[in-house]
């Protein structure tokens, strides 16, 4: 395949960037998208140009490092697929492919296609955990968890923190990421003691960094793990309840 790439190049945070055009010849259809970029980079180095910086690590769709806006879609044209698992067979010979970094105020560009997603860590820090100090845990089978509940928690917990939801959202909202973690922990019996504090702190921290949810639903198809919008409804409900509930009664059933 012969492709034309239009790639966003930016030398550092806060400086002007621009699209550069590169010809990519001899691309094999079994290559992954990132391997195609590797090859382009290898040729750039040989020609004495600095390679394109892009984030990537595991290359099997689980670490959440990679994330490119490809032809206007987060993670490119294939659904439920992170950029690293996108393969060139999804493209045709002669295509022009436009590659941009994620764009959100709270995902500042570090260089070229690399952005800093530290804001996600701040949200987790605020409450995306269950406080269970090492050594204090009870026997694992003491608390049965209905399979449906456990499965729903797992569905939400599958989030890889790649930021595609923010990138795809017309509002630059971090709802799907935050809701996935809220849902994962708030659904489980183990997460109940911190349930209201968790959702309150996480939502308010999220709002310090990201936009609001207009229920466009754009995040769901962009998510490589297919995290459901239902989690956002659940987070909205729990946040409202967190403002209403008498938490002193949390021990009652």
């Amino acid at each position: 395949m012969h492709l034309t790439l239009r790639v966003w190049r930016q030398d550092g945070p806060g400086v002007e960037g621009r699209f550069e055009t590169y010809e990519a010849a001899g691309i094999h259809q079994d290559m992954s998208f990132l391997e195609m970029l590797d090859l382009v980079n290898e040729r750039l180095v040989t020609a004495g140009h600095e390679p394109i910086a892009f984030d990537h690590d595991c290359r099997e769709g689980i670490c959440g490092s990679c994330g490119l806006m490809i032809d206007g879609r987060a993670h490119g044209p294939q659904g439920s697929t992170a950029t690293c698992q996108l393969h060139m067979r999804e493209f045709s010979d002669g295509d022009t492919i436009v590659i941009e970094p994620w764009r959100a105020t709270s995902f500042p560009i570090v260089r070229d296609l690399v952005v800093d997603r530290g804001a996600f860590d701040r949200i987790i820090e605020a409450g995306g955990y269950i406080g269970a100090p090492t050594g204090s845990a009870p026997e694992a089978n003491l608390t049965p968890v209905p399979k449906e509940t456990s499965d729903a928690a797992m569905d939400a917990a599958a989030c890889i923190g790649c930021g595609a939801c923010v990138a795809a959202c017309p509002n630059g909202a971090g709802q799907l990421f935050t809701a996935a973690k809220v849902a994962h922990l708030n659904l489980l019996p183990q997460g109940q003691p911190e349930r209201w504090m968790r959702v309150e702190r996480m939502v308010e921290t999220m709002e310090e960094y990201f936009g609001s949810c207009s229920n466009h639903g754009e995040c769901e198809p962009a998510c490589p793990k297919g995290i459901s919008l239902d989690n956002i409804a659940l987070m909205n409900r729990d946040y409202l309840l967190s403002k209403i509930r008498n938490r002193k009664l949390g021990g009652q059933r």
């Binding site: 206007g72 436009v98 017309p170 509002n171 630059g172 207009s214 639903g217 962009a222």
Partner: peptide, 29 residues
């Protein structure tokens, strides 16, 4: 909320978006 959303993405995408789910109705609210 519009202002908040605008702040959340100060620099817009520099290439055209290809929306999958955000309908005309939702984007033109």
């Amino acid at each position: 909320l519009t202002r908040s959303n605008r702040d959340a993405r100060e620099t817009k995408y520099q290439s055209p978006r290809d929306y999958l789910a955000a309908r005309y109705a939702s984007r033109t609210m």
